[in-house]
Design a protein around this nucleic acid. Structure first.
Lengths: 221, 221
DNA sequence: GATGATTTGTACGTATGTATA
DNA sequence: ATATACATACGTACAAATCAT
């Protein structure tokens, strides 16, 4: 055995590292990525770096212009709104399905998760809440018992993580998020999928709204 | 200017070719893809082939087992159903949005497309109807005026194209499809997004049902 | 507009790890 | 169980195109 990270492939490790750096904002949108430079940085040759970049291009995190290099995808505000609307609708869809399909155990686990998050809100633990939030929504995807849909939802969501963190910074947003989660859970408990769906959509739109100014300030349309 | 094909990159051309071959069923599920063999087939070296395979792996068309080769993804019947449910729900979603957002011009074009398809049904032109069908649904994606959502829908749909053709072969399915399209259009004309959505979901589930036996026969669960 | 530097795209070689006899 | 065969993973080298001057 000789695992260094998750995948034993260099290109996978590089891809994961770059994914994190893009998602966390370390690699800002528009940054051009030089293959040789990255190779040096990771102590590898250009080959695995190129493979990683190709993969990132498919997931849409970077843009490759043939023979002109690769840059971190720069999102227009219109496209960001499109992405937010899409994930909002997909989450809405997932919650509706999850309401009708989740097992008692899953419902219980989700409820526990939600309860535990109360402490994070009180402690104003941004990182902790962000992590919980991912779990919360991820649990709902899983509860659709549709693996493919869950994957799609996760993939879209991960592309918005950069901004999600920022959103929680807004005054009172964390507490509001917690409250909205509670409303969704209540609807699920009643077995009312449509209500849960509507509340989830509202929750997502609130999160998006909290970002409105940020987006306007940061990205040129 | 010096375009040879679509993308001027060898790896892109190889990726597109392989995508087509997998989608059309020429490369059956479970087929193992040998880098050297593919390189010979395309008259290239293994490098661009590898890059193409990496991209296909991200889109989920092939599976790469580190140091153990790559094979065309073999779908279980459960996963195929997951995919069908997902695209059905996404289409449902798209139609609802499209109803409220499409321009008169778009509505007119879609209607024309639908009318023209009548001839294809009468002529039992399977290829022609399949092509029309892609356009019809594609137009609806576009009519959401949400580019990101449209891309997602298209990506999912393309992964099911292999089976979609088969489905239309069923006795009377083409005529039924045409009729269902008409019902969806009628709801759109009335501006009733919810009705259009319900009818689209029914349309998609009918298409999936037509595949039920095929799936049971072809794929082991 | 031409030339040089930098960087991408492709080819090829070697080593490591997996499967098989 | 050991060894052989083979395909992949990574590195290096060269060619071609872009860009900077």
């Amino acid at each position: 055995m000789s695992e260094a990270g998750d995948g034993t492939l260099l290109s996978d490790r590089i891809r994961n590292a770059l994914t994190d750096e893009i998602a966390s904002g370390v690699l800002a949108a528009g940054t051009s990525l030089d293959e040789q430079h990255l190779a040096d940085r990771f102590g590898a040759s250009r080959t695995p770096v190129r493979e990683a970049l190709r993969q990132l291009a498919v997931s849409g995190l970077v843009e490759m212009r043939p023979r002109r290099g690769v840059l971190v995808t720069r999102l227009t505000s219109a496209r960001m709104m499109d992405m937010f609307e899409t994930i909002a609708e997909v989450e809405t869809l997932c919650v509706r399905l999850a309401t009708y399909r989740m097992t008692p155990l899953e419902r219980c686990r989700l409820s526990d998760l939600h309860e535990a998050s109360k402490a994070l809100v009180a402690a104003r633990d941004l990182d902790g809440y962000e992590s919980f939030n991912r779990d919360f929504h991820g649990s709902l995807y899983a509860a659709t018992h549709n693996g493919f849909m869950a994957e799609q939802a996760l993939a879209i969501r991960s592309r918005l993580d950069v901004f999600r963190r920022t959103q929680l910074r807004h005054e009172g947003r964390m507490a509001a998020s917690h409250e909205e989660h509670g409303q969704v859970l209540a609807a699920i408990a009643e077995g009312d999928g449509e209500l849960a769906a509507r509340r989830m959509r509202a929750h997502m739109l609130n999160a998006a709204s909290a970002l409105g100014r940020y987006i306007a300030d940061t990205v040129e349309g």
